[in-house]
Simulated assay, not measured.
Amino acid sequence: MTPEMDENRPLRTYGRIKARTLKPRQAGLVEALLPHLAVPEEGAIDVDELFSPPPCGAGPGVGVTAASSQNAALIPPSQPSPARGEGLILEIGFGGGEHLVAQAVAHPDARFIGVEPFLNGVASCLRHIEESGAQNIRLHQGDARDVIARLPDGSLDLAYILFPDPWPKTRHHKRRLIQPEFLSELARVMKPGAEMRFATDWANYASWTLEHFTRDPRFVWTAERAEDWRTPWPGHATTRYEAKRLGDCAPVWLRFVRA
C-alpha cells in the first residue's frame, strides 16, 4: 500500500490485531477452516454465493494444502446451505465469537457474517464453530467498514455491535466506530424495519451513540421505558468481554430500527 493510499483510509476503530501466539489447535483452524468461511477480500459481496455452496461442499480436505492436510479433520462436514427464513445478520466485532456462534446455533435458518480484526478472537470463534458444527457463519478478519461497503443495498435484517472499543479519551473519540459516515453506510445496507442492536458499558459511549442515532432520521430508537436500555434483549448470549465488566457503568442496551 502506498503512503497516499494509506492516508486516504479512515482511522482505525480498533486497537491491536494480535496478541499472544496462537495455540496449535487455533493455528490449525485458522489455516484449515478459515479459508472455507472467509468473506472475499475484494469485490461486491453476493450473499447467496457466499453461503452456497456450503464450505467444504465437496468433502473434508478440499482446498487444504499439503502443509495443512493434517488439520483436514477440523473442517466440519458438508451440510445443506442455510435457508433465508431469518435473513442476513451481521455482528461487528464479535470478540471471541461466543455470541455469534450462540446466535447462529439458535437461528439455523439465518445467515450470519461476523467481523473481527483481532486474530486471536477469530481463532477463538473458529473453535466455537468447529465444536458447535454451525454451518451458517462466514467470517472476515479486518475492518467491518470494508465489508459493509461491499454489501448490497437493503440486505441486512439485523446487526449487532456489542461492547466495541470505547476509545474513552476525548482526543480519541474520532476513532469510535459510531460516526455519521458509518451510520450512512449502515442505513444503506439495512432493510426497512431491520434492527441495529448496540451495547456498551461506557456511559459516555452510550450517550455518544444515542445522540448520533437519534440525529439520523433513518433510525428510530425503540425504547419506551428505562428498563428497555437497562436489560438485554431476549435471547442475548453473554460475551466474554461483557462478563469482565471493564467499563465505568452497567451495560447499556440500545435498539434502533431502520425507518
Rank of each mutant, 00 (worst) to 15 (best):
164 P>D: 06
174 K>C: 11
132 S>V: 01
167 W>I: 09
174 K>W: 09
177 L>E: 02
131 E>M: 08
130 E>M: 11
143 D>N: 02
142 G>Y: 00
148 I>M: 11
143 D>S: 02
137 I>V: 15
171 R>L: 01
140 H>T: 03
158 L>W: 13
159 A>L: 07
168 P>K: 04
158 L>N: 07
176 R>D: 01
151 L>E: 00
154 G>F: 12
178 I>M: 15
179 Q>D: 10
166 P>Q: 04
129 I>K: 05
168 P>D: 08
144 A>H: 04
162 L>M: 08
176 R>N: 01
148 I>R: 05
126 L>Y: 06
134 A>V: 13
161 I>A: 15
141 Q>E: 14
163 F>G: 06
164 P>N: 06
177 L>K: 07
144 A>K: 01
149 A>P: 10
131 E>I: 07
155 S>H: 03
130 E>W: 05
169 K>H: 13
172 H>N: 15
139 L>G: 00
166 P>K: 05
164 P>C: 09
139 L>F: 03
130 E>N: 12
163 F>D: 04
179 Q>F: 01
180 P>E: 06
175 R>C: 02
148 I>C: 03
133 G>T: 06
154 G>C: 13
151 L>T: 04
142 G>E: 03
131 E>R: 14
159 A>E: 06
131 E>D: 14
132 S>L: 05
165 D>P: 11
175 R>M: 00
134 A>S: 11
151 L>I: 04
158 L>M: 14
165 D>K: 14
148 I>T: 03
164 P>A: 10
134 A>Y: 07
162 L>R: 04
134 A>M: 11
126 L>M: 07
163 F>Q: 04
137 I>M: 06
166 P>Y: 05
164 P>T: 10
165 D>Y: 13
172 H>R: 10
172 H>D: 14
145 R>G: 00
143 D>I: 00
165 D>C: 12
146 D>P: 02
133 G>K: 10
149 A>Q: 12
164 P>G: 07
135 Q>C: 15
171 R>N: 10
175 R>D: 00
161 I>P: 09
163 F>N: 07
171 R>F: 03
156 L>E: 02
162 L>A: 05
148 I>L: 14
132 S>M: 04
162 L>I: 12
128 H>K: 13
152 P>W: 02
170 T>M: 13
172 H>E: 11
169 K>E: 09
154 G>W: 08
179 Q>E: 08
177 L>C: 05
128 H>I: 12
153 D>C: 06
161 I>N: 12
140 H>S: 12
172 H>P: 04
152 P>H: 06
154 G>Y: 09
164 P>I: 08
163 F>A: 05
153 D>L: 05
157 D>S: 15
137 I>R: 05
137 I>L: 12
154 G>T: 11
136 N>T: 11
178 I>A: 13
161 I>R: 12
175 R>T: 00
151 L>M: 05
168 P>M: 09
136 N>P: 13
176 R>A: 01
136 N>Y: 07
134 A>T: 06
136 N>A: 01
144 A>N: 02
177 L>W: 11
130 E>S: 11
159 A>Q: 08
147 V>G: 01
136 N>H: 07
139 L>W: 01
175 R>G: 03
127 R>M: 14
131 E>L: 12
138 R>H: 03
127 R>E: 13
158 L>Y: 13
167 W>K: 06
159 A>H: 03
132 S>F: 03
136 N>R: 08
179 Q>A: 13
